[in-house]
């Protein structure tokens, strides 16, 4: 446990030291939220209708931004192979790394989502559902992205393989999440959508750390 905590704390310290890089997801979110209304026109009805989709697409792309740096710097400076010398199974360290990715890319987006929702005239009754969907959905994005990052570690930096692997897997998350927020705006039930997202989260939490560990091992060799 102490090794996981040590890795998590070091990752967060590095994220703070990288400052600008770590703020990218948030800057990206607000760039989308500010630019799209300039492009499609500032009408409240139109913006309210596209708000859930915009916030979610921005959150999705923001999480993708940091994936390249999830395992690659550690692979290049040799700290990744040291994971196999710890007294903890590597899967635990993978979980710790994915958690720090979520804390740096997912949590700021969740925290600033109410502001983004306000800027886009999202109906107030859907705000809580938007927040719940982000709370369930952003960890799924980190997990699936982490698996893709582990698989593509052996390829060149900036490989197109990474987004190509991630997109099909995160489409269900996007559909269920925006469906839930849109349904809440019309006072329709949202439990089915959120329940399916929870199921995806459980599936990802169970399988991804093991699969990512195997993928890292392949790339280390």
């Amino acid at each position: 446990m102490s090794a996981m905590l040590a890795l998590l704390l070091r990752d967060l310290r590095l994220a703070i030291r990288h400052g600008g890089e770590s703020l990218m997801p948030l800057v990206f979110l607000f760039a989308v939220i500010i630019l799209v209304p300039l492009g499609v026109g500032p009408g409240p009805n139109l913006l309210a209708a596209i708000a859930p989709g915009m916030i979610w697409v921005a959150a999705l792309l923001a999480s993708l931004l940091a994936l390249e740096n999830l395992f690659r710097p550690d692979h290049e400076d040799g700290t990744l192979e040291q994971w196999w010398l710890g007294h903890l199974p590597v899967t635990g360290l993978v979980i710790s790394r994915l958690l720090s990715h979520w804390l740096v890319t997912g949590v700021p987006v969740i925290l600033f989502a109410p502001l983004a929702a306000q800027m886009l005239y999202l109906p107030p009754q859907s705000l809580s559902v938007l927040m719940i969907s982000l709370l369930i959905g952003t960890p799924i994005l980190s997990l699936i992205g982490g698996l893709a990052a582990a698989l593509t570690l052996g390829t060149n930096r900036g490989s197109v393989l990474l987004p190509i692997l991630v997109f099909p897997l995160v489409v269900p998350v996007l559909i269920f999440a925006t469906g839930a927020v849109a349904a809440a705006a019309d006072d329709l039930p949202v439990r089915a959508n959120l329940g399916l997202m929870l199921a995806l989260l459980v599936l990802a939490i169970t399988l991804v750390p093991l699969a990512a560990t195997a993928a890292l091992r392949l790339n280390i060799e």
Partner: peptide, 19 residues
């Protein structure tokens, strides 16, 4: 327990030596 020191330094350049 085993320690391995390879060609790569296995250090984080952004952190200080003590960190």
């Amino acid at each position: 327990r085993t320690a391995f020191l390879g060609h790569l330094p296995a250090l984080k350049g952004e952190l200080t030596c003590r960190e």
